[in-house]
Simulated assay, not measured.
Amino acid sequence: MPALDAHRRINPADEIIATKGLTIRFLLTGEDSNGSIASFELMVPHAGGLPVPAHSHGHYEESIYGLEGVLSLTIDGEVVTVGPGELVCIPRGAIHRFDNKGTEDARVLCVITPAAIGPAYFREAFAVISDAAGGPPDRARMMEIMRRHGLTPAAPPTL
């Protein structure tokens, strides 16, 4: 069987980026699509969420397609659930976050257009989460990583 060249390879990142039950596996990166699209699987354990602040991104859309379980997204204050076979597009500039409030793990396919974020962001962010050793991640470090990779952390809620 002939080897696939760089333009036709499947699953360019065999790496699984993981911490605290969260896993990311890139299927397509910006380097492999001339920057037009990135795609990755995200697994969020039941009764969990992504321990990063709510955020927005002004340079790309993020579409979430449900594969297993149910993921809850809060987008501009509205809670939307995504289950198997359902899709939601998070528009540029919308403040959002992800949680899995269900009793089973959720697995979704995320598509970023254009491919303004890649594996490096998740490696760095997950390292901060792992360093927290079960406590909350260092918010200042997390926000610095987010900003450097084009995400804008939302202001904390006021009481």
Rank of each mutant, 00 (worst) to 15 (best):
A3S: 04
R8S: 07
N11P: 05
A13E: 15
E15Q: 14
I16N: 02
I16M: 03
I17L: 15
A18R: 05
T19S: 15
T19K: 14
G21Y: 00
I24W: 14
F26I: 05
L28R: 13
L28I: 15
T29F: 04
I37S: 06
E41D: 13
P45K: 04
A47S: 13
A47L: 14
G49P: 02
V52W: 05
A54V: 06
H55E: 02
G58T: 04
H59M: 06
Y60V: 01
I64M: 09
I64R: 02
Y65M: 10
G66K: 06
T74W: 05
I75D: 11
G77K: 01
E78L: 11
V79S: 14
G83N: 03
P84Q: 13
P84R: 08
E86G: 02
L87F: 10
V88F: 02
C89G: 05
P91Y: 01
P91S: 09
P91A: 11
R92T: 08
R92C: 06
A94P: 11
I95W: 01
D99Y: 06
N100C: 05
N100F: 00
N100H: 06
G102R: 09
G102Y: 00
A106W: 00
V108R: 02
C110T: 14
C110G: 06
T113V: 15
A116S: 09
F122L: 06
R123L: 15
I129G: 08
S130C: 10
S130V: 11
S130F: 13
P137C: 12
P137R: 02
D138F: 08
R139N: 04
R139W: 02
R141S: 12
R141P: 12
M142E: 08
E144I: 09
I145E: 10
R147H: 12
R147G: 05
